[in-house]
Design a protein around this nucleic acid. Structure first.
Length: 414
DNA sequence: TGGCTAGTTAAGTCCACAGGCTGTA
DNA sequence: ACTACAGCCTGTGGACTTAACTAGC
């Protein structure tokens, strides 16, 4: 275990997956953990650069190495007073299938590692990835750009990251992640309003809400900018207005769809309450256009608690094992089911949108019915054989036996 | 309001078998 | 250390079954 990727056995391993107890290179990490929704939940972190076998917990800024608890203790323990004063940066865990750009937003030093450590071809390739890169997206499946960061310690700092960089940076400037989330960085900025986002992170609702995001990747690219009106029943200007006033949830709040079905997973902690909707999406000003907001996929979860009469933003802490059930208490589902979010101010287009909304919902349901989920064929050869195998009532039959369905000829043997 | 029925939706099961994987000689 | 072989296990798609859910009465 360690140093060489456990999966491909060729590249240098860089991340450690606790669930798989495996050391993986970035390419294989992404590959392996894009296989299905469950594997996407695996919590991974950097590999200790000293022992190459344990998950790194901290990054020593002085030595520029990532260390596991044991190596950190050995290297920075009391026995070495000088080293114990080294600046250290907590290393986040992540789940999902982040690109290098997203990783760099989680781990500001990840690009340094790549460049200094002789990045492999696959890592170079990853470095060129962009969240908005459709080619990558297609090659890895529709939802792989989801990332969730789980680190209770880091959470408070994450919330202090500059809004605009948190929201815009990851979507439009791949590889140029927000500022490092250093533990030493001052917290508690002048802005007392809760910052309801997390760098390089989309909220729990989005993290695992495959359905939800798949709809942004609906076939034929339904969410091209010109399709907003068709899909959401609002003009683009209105969409932007919604974004400005209530955020993307306002926009999506008009859709009573998949978010309601999803679990809130992969979330980050700290429950924050705010008295109004504006704070809920602080960075949704004109700086973020509708398309960038959609493609960014870095939204936090907004849990509106109608019972309390105020919006309540819940970041669930992922310390240790967690699961989707942890987030089902979040009221986001009910909010979505209820339709318009409370802060969506009434507008004269209401009647006009209701009709369009019905159409949009119908179209959505139709597409949802027809589309395939995130099933990923691992062995094309097996698929090829299954595709031509004869069947009886859907079941494979022995070669030569009678069949009622032949995929090749669409004929029956009896 | 609770119970029943009918309709809808989602998830699970089954099948054969090539090829991957593991253990042994 | 390497190769060859045997045997077990996995994964593939369509039809069907079962369970869960919803709506109406």
């Amino acid at each position: 275990m360690g140093y060489i990727c456990d999966f491909c056995g060729e590249q240098r391993s860089m991340v450690y997956c606790r669930s798989d107890a495996a050391c993986l290179c970035l390419s294989c990490d992404r590959n392996v953990h894009s296989a299905n929704a469950l594997s996407k939940r695996h919590s991974r972190t950097l590999l200790c650069e000293r022992c190459n076998s344990q998950p790194a917990l901290v990054r020593c800024s002085e030595e520029k190495v990532s260390l596991c608890q044991n190596c950190d203790w050995i290297g920075h323990g009391n026995s070495t007073p000088s080293a114990s004063t080294h600046k250290k940066q907590t290393i986040n865990c992540y789940s999902g299938c982040p690109s290098a750009a997203e990783l760099s937003s989680i781990w500001s030093f990840v690009l340094d590692i790549q460049s200094a450590g002789g990045e492999s071809a696959c890592e170079q390739e990853l470095g060129l990835m962009s969240i908005t890169d459709n080619g990558i997206k297609n090659s890895w499946g529709p939802n792989e750009d989801t990332v969730s960061v789980s680190d209770g310690v880091e959470t408070s700092n994450i919330r202090d990251v500059d809004k605009s960089s948190a929201w815009v940076g990851t979507s439009t400037t791949p590889g140029l992640g927000p500022a490092p989330q250093n533990l030493e960085r001052p917290t508690g900025s002048a802005n007392n309003a809760p910052k309801l986002y997390c760098t390089g992170t989309k909220g729990p609702e989005f993290c695992e809400d495959d359905d939800f995001y798949e709809d942004f990747n609906m076939d034929e690219m339904d969410l091209n900018i010109e399709n907003y009106e068709e899909l959401f029943g609002v003009t683009l200007n209105h969409s932007e207005e919604l974004l400005e006033n209530g955020g993307i949830d306002s926009l999506f709040g008009t859709m009573d769809m998949s978010a309601a079905e999803s679990n809130c997973q992969g979330a980050v902690a700290a429950e924050v309450s705010s008295v109004g909707p504006v704070n809920a999406m602080p960075a949704c000003s004109n700086a973020a256009s509708a398309d960038s907001m959609v493609s960014a996929k870095t939204e936090p979860i907004l849990c509106f608690n109608a019972k309390q009469g105020h919006s309540s933003l819940s970041f669930s802490n992922l310390t240790g094992e967690s699961n989707g059930g942890d987030y089902q208490d979040c009221d986001a589902s009910s909010m979505r089911l209820m339709g318009e979010p409370p802060w969506c101010h009434p507008c004269p287009e209401a009647s006009y949108t209701s009709a369009n909304r019905s159409n949009a919902v119908m179209r959505y349901k139709e597409k949802k019915k027809n589309r395939k989920f995130d099933k990923r064929v691992r062995y094309a050869s097996r698929k090829a054989r299954a595709d031509v195998r004869r069947r009886v009532k859907g079941r494979f039959v022995k070669a030569g036996d009678a069949y009622d369905y032949d995929p090749l000829n669409q004929t029956r043997s009896y």
